[in-house]
């Protein structure tokens, strides 16, 4: 069950700069912590976040062990055309979680 919250304005004017916010539930386990049995807890972090606007990648970020759990990423886009904004989070195992939102540009 993907647990992600994305915030995209429903409507925007042509050429307007809009703020996009995305947050996902993830432990971001660094791999440096020791569990109760004395063995290191295996690393499990989100490595890459990407955002596509009508299929074209417009923003991406590489994440590292120092990033907190449940990473929150905010950035801006120029609203050009109506369409779908897709978000992809890829973890250490290569598993991806996705979310998407629609934007109407008038």
């Amino acid at each position: 069950m993907a647990r992600a919250l994305v915030n995209v304005p429903k409507a925007a004017r042509q050429g307007e700069v809009v703020e996009i916010r995305a947050m996902i539930a993830h432990p971001m386990e660094t791999g440096y912590r020791v569990g109760p049995n004395g063995i290191n807890i295996p690393r499990d972090i989100i490595r890459r976040f990407a955002c596509t606007y009508n299929g074209e990648e417009v923003f991406s970020a590489d994440l590292f062990p120092a990033v907190s759990a449940n990473p929150f990423i905010a950035f801006t886009l120029v609203a050009t055309t109506s369409g779908t904004i897709d978000f992809t989070w890829t973890d250490d195992a290569g598993k991806t979680q996705t979310a998407s939102a629609e934007i109407t540009v008038g």
């Binding site: 915030n7 916010r21 539930a25």
Partner: peptide, 14 residues
Amino acid sequence: MSNPGMLWVLQGEQ
């Protein structure tokens, strides 16, 4: 939209 606790509320709803 920035309160991480809402992720759990969302999961609870499901």
